[in-house]
Design a protein around this nucleic acid. Sequence first.
DNA 1: AACGGCGGTTCAAATAATGAACCGATAACG
DNA 2: CGTTATCGGTTCATTATTTGAACCGCCGTT
Lengths: 257, 257
Amino acid sequence: MSTVRKAVSLLELFTLEEPEIGLSDLSRKAGLDKATARRLLMALAEHRLVEQEPVSRRYRLGAGLTRLARIRDAQLPLLPVAIPILRELSQQTGETVHISEYSAGALLTIHVELSPKANRVNVNVGQILPLHGTASGLALLAFVREEIRRDCLRTPLAAFTPHTMTDAKQVLQAVWLAAERGYSRSGQGYEEGVHSVAAPILGSDGYPIGTVAIASPVSRADDSVAAVQGALVIEATRRITKQLIGEPVEPAERALG
Amino acid sequence: MSTVRKAVSLLELFTLEEPEIGLSDLSRKAGLDKATARRLLMALAEHRLVEQEPVSRRYRLGAGLTRLARIRDAQLPLLPVAIPILRELSQQTGETVHISEYSAGALLTIHVELSPKANRVNVNVGQILPLHGTASGLALLAFVREEIRRDCLRTPLAAFTPHTMTDAKQVLQAVWLAAERGYSRSGQGYEEGVHSVAAPILGSDGYPIGTVAIASPVSRADDSVAAVQGALVIEATRRITKQLIGEPVEPAERALG
DNA sequence: AACGGCGGTTCAAATAATGAACCGATAACG
DNA sequence: CGTTATCGGTTCATTATTTGAACCGCCGTT
């Protein structure tokens, strides 16, 4: 494993639940020697990607990350634009709504608006979603470049639940349906008991840069609910796309059977 | 130079002005071989710290940074709390206001509210401020732990303008004055023609975690203006501190002559 | 006082990083 | 329309960096 990968994997040990970690703990969790972990941390600290709490001597993520993230967000300010729209969508539907960003062949969940209901779907920020097993993934596949879709479906498809579609043909059917309707649907393909509906956010080139999904307990989902949610999620993503680009964007391509 | 440092220095080449850079360009700017730069970028991309624009093949900062920054900000949510207060402060004074975070022995500027006036001070997000040459630095030094202050003033002090105080005794005088008044003042210590007034934001332990500064053209600054700005910047930092911690915080220590 | 865990350091051995030369593709030029 | 330059990307023998077991001093517990 390259040194850089090890260093970054150290960064990824910090979570919302555990934002400060000591050296020994950190090295154990990363599977690295203490000396190695320390050298990597020092290098990261030099650029403020981590910092050390002076009294406890524990490490935490550094201010440099805030800075870099702001540079990125200035270029592609997804969250500030999307969050109010997601909140509204969550209120309209009473369900958990999450937004994911497409990056390096996968979807990364970057924000969640939780349903106020006691029986709700919980989604974590930072979660990586498989393209073939989630509504978000299907919505993305329905509008990406043909080549990316092919690459994704060529590799063997992992099963996350007994309901996961692992046959490429089957997935393609769902993708075609999503391309036609404008929204995708997935029942328990990634997590048991979770039903989702999703639509893509388009970039200025007409290809998806991410997705928005509404996740409900299966007990509250049926065809008519899905149709309503589908229409709402399409509207939400259109609004986000429009605000992001400054004008409505048409999909550059649609998966067609 | 360690591999990690090289990798991070690649990240730091991306700026608001140039958020997308090609491989050759990137390797030249970093002073690295093209092959080396590429390997580093691949490692970073694997963790989504950078991503590659599929068509132009140029690189840009990745979504993983947004995610990590959100974890950090959840722990220390300076900006969301501070920005509205900074904006107000900028409107009250008509001057440029900036906030910096203390990390690893230096101040990093994390947000700027620019003055609406034509003749204004421009400050860039991401800029690192020297502790002895800026009002922000002096405000910090006035309230940090004795040991940090000593360490800072022991090393030779760089001169950024003919006005920079490079004598530790002289700097200490300014620090003492700042500790007494609650705000610091610096005239052209870092940039010609810039006058600044600053105060510290305190963490729950009573030590500064950052500073807020009001930067004016020297032509608009005199003793009475500075006194007014000083009172305003103290009030702003107190409000930020209070919102951050949940209650007012008294300084743990003051530099005293 | 003995113990165990912490953060941090050392240095010979082992492994990973390096970069000059190369490839094919694309854009610019006379 | 060939020539040239630059792009992103790759290769592999050479080289320099990373590695980790053992060590330190420190602190709180037993």
